[in-house]
Amino acid sequence: MAHGAPLIDIFGLTFNKANMLMITIASAIVFIIAVLSTRKLAMKPSGMQNFMEWVMDFVKGIINSTMDWKDGGRFHVLGITLMMYVFVANMLGLPFSVTYDGVLWWKSPTADPVVTMTLAVMVVGLSHYYGVKLKGTAEYGKEFFKPFWFMFPIKLIEEFANTLTLGLRLYGNIYAGEILLSLLAAGLATGVGGHLAAIVPMLAWQGFSLFVGAIQAFIFTMLTMVYLSHKVSHDH
């Protein structure tokens, strides 16, 4: 459990090689799935194209439930990519984890707060960027003093709270899942009795983690769209 992280310093930046590996793997998997399922595109969809179209419609539904498609259509690609990436990243740590030389290599990249917070900050940053771009600086600034001017501090705090909760919710769910999985795995390794005792909770928790991973991917996308719509929509 007390695994170290394979850190490396380059140009004064600290890299976690395990994170880099898992981020790359997750991205590669998403890319491969997406590209393979959109190789043979047809007017009459079949196989994986159906699945991808379902995902697109699903994300479209999320966006439509938070804002006008006229405003939200530009976030479609972001939403699909975000959901697929977060889902795949959540799933990666489920089947196994790999430690080598006391260093944890294989895990969910989303079980690291740095990764999830990066995504969260990126999303909130995008929401501000599009807020300024679509409504103009003045209109964007006024949003902070609505409905009353004295709400300004609360609004300001809200932005940071949004970012923090968005990132840490994902991190907490996935990290907790992995902690429990590794505890159960440790139980599996303690002999016949421990093995038998740990099998059922292991199965249950993996199934639950699957569910949690999917739900978290959905929630992350949903909240992304909600934050974006707060900044982008003209009426709310």
Partner: peptide, 18 residues
Amino acid sequence: GLNTGDILFQLVMFLVLL
């Protein structure tokens, strides 16, 4: 310390993926 490199890597990776 903060894994500043991870932040950069994740960001770049995600944008590239996008």
